[in-house]
């Protein structure tokens, strides 16, 4: 699966967004190929927002294939599972 990451701007985040992204990457292992947001043929987009305001949502074009995270309460395992499901739905 080809997955891109989109971050919010990080004005006053409630958790360490980069650390969380790295945890998801470690958990996903080799299931995903991480690609740039500007690349085509994405299967899913992981949107990591520092708070519930989730600023990027209004601008994001791939919302139907996006998994939006607004806190570190979700475990990386659950996030990986959600990305996998988005990717499968996208394939269908």
């Amino acid at each position: 699966m080809r997955v891109a990451i989109k971050f919010c701007g990080g004005c006053d985040p409630t958790f360490d967004r980069v650390e969380f992204a790295n945890q998801v990457k470690r958990t996903a292992g080799e299931h995903f190929t991480w690609i740039g947001l500007d690349q085509d043929s994405k299967d899913a987009v992981l949107v990591i927002c520092g708070c519930q305001r989730a600023c990027p949502i209004e601008e994001i074009q791939d919302i139907s294939i996006s998994v939006v995270v607004t806190s570190a309460e979700l475990s990386p395992e659950i996030v990986v599972d959600r990305i996998l499901r988005k990717g499968k739905n996208n394939e269908n």
Binding site: I5, K6, F7, C8, G9, G10, C11, R17, V18, A21, L37, I48, C55, P56
Partner: peptide, 8 residues
């Protein structure tokens, strides 16, 4: 930095 570019 991807984690700040939206603002920066």
């Amino acid at each position: 930095a991807p984690e700040f570019e939206d603002l920066a």
